[in-house]
Simulated scan of single mutants.
Amino acid sequence: MKCIGFALFLAGIFPVFSPAQAQTIDTIRVNDHRLQLGRLATGTHRYLVYNETAAGERTNMWIWERTVSTGFRPGAPIKAIMKPYSYIVTQHWYGSDAQHGERKVTSVVRHEDFAPLYHFSELTASGKTQTEAFDFRADSVVTPDTVATTAPRTAQALAEPTYNWELDLELFPLLPLKAGKTMAINFYHPGAPLAPAYYNYTVQGSDNLLLYNGRKASCWVLAIDYGKGNYAIWWIDKKKHLVWRMKEYFNGQYRFKVLMTS
């Protein structure tokens, strides 16, 4: 990978599409505390992530290791009797070669509503390391003065609180899922060139997904329509509250995320 701005690198990974259009939908706002946080699956989960061409060629392979744990607000004194103030989600991406390299991410979200507090990312590829950091505040997302980064310092204004789009695999199982339901979720991907916006996700129904070990899992099927024939689908286990699989189609190419271990 060339030494490019980290935001441009992310723009190459994540598709660009229009936000939710006005219609009768269930809006999931951060301040409404609609997420069912008792479902949050702590521990480590590993995903195989890859692209696939129409001809079946698989490229751009990664192993994503994602760990969810309870923690405390950064800087707060830790006492045994205190309830945790936050969840900490760490990611370690292992690329298939030196060009893809590896990426380490630490995201801190508020314990009571999954609102993002802090996000740090480090990408090492082709012998070069790029870092970026973000503080989520009430009215903005800014690069903190206390963290050294290689990415340009940025400030994104917020009209209202937003969720961290990097944590969609952890967030989707927490939604009030029901067949036929469409939900608008305000997402922002730290460092990417898209401003925060609401996007529509629809529960298409249920499916008994065949797993790698031959068993089946009863899943909700959650989908988003990117427009012009492009889409993404997630299979979410109804009992374990984990995303087993994602299938995405965008501009002639498929992208998959497959849960390997949990």
Rank of each mutant, 00 (worst) to 15 (best):
F187Q: 00
I185T: 08
S206H: 14
W220H: 14
L175W: 01
G229P: 15
M183I: 02
R215D: 15
L175V: 04
D225C: 12
G180Y: 01
K228N: 15
N208F: 11
P176F: 03
T182G: 05
Y198P: 08
L174S: 10
Y199N: 04
P176H: 05
A184K: 10
G180L: 01
G229M: 08
G227Y: 15
L194P: 02
A192C: 11
Y188D: 04
L194R: 15
L194I: 13
L210A: 15
K181L: 13
Y231N: 07
A197Q: 09
V221P: 04
P196V: 05
T182R: 06
K181F: 01
A184L: 01
Y231G: 04
P176Y: 04
Y201Q: 04
A217Q: 02
L209D: 01
N186H: 10
G180I: 00
H189S: 06
Y198D: 11
L210D: 14
A179D: 15
S218R: 06
A195N: 15
Y212K: 09
C219Q: 01
P196Y: 00
F187V: 03
Y199G: 12
Y201M: 02
V203D: 05
K228I: 14
C219P: 09
P196G: 04
V203I: 04
L175T: 00
N186G: 02
N213R: 12
A223T: 08
Y212F: 12
G229E: 12
Y199T: 08
P190V: 03
Q204D: 12
N213F: 06
L175F: 03
K216L: 07
N208G: 03
A179K: 14
L175D: 01
G214T: 07
N200G: 10
N230G: 05
A217L: 04
G227A: 10
A184S: 12
G229T: 10
Y199S: 05
N186R: 12
N200L: 06
T202P: 00
G214I: 05
K228A: 13
L174K: 02
V221L: 11
V221E: 12
Y226M: 07
L222Y: 08
H189Q: 11
K178R: 13
M183K: 00
K181S: 09
N208C: 09
G227M: 10
P190G: 02
L174T: 04
I185R: 03
Y226D: 05
A179I: 08
H189F: 15
Q204G: 11
L174H: 03
P193V: 05
D225E: 13
A223H: 08
K216T: 11
L194S: 11
I185Y: 01
R215H: 12
L209H: 01
K181W: 03
A192W: 15
L222F: 06
A223F: 13
N213L: 07
L209W: 01
N208R: 11
F187Y: 06
Y212T: 15
Y231T: 05
F187K: 00
A232R: 12
C219I: 00
W220N: 07
T202Q: 05
I224Y: 06
P193Y: 04
A184W: 05
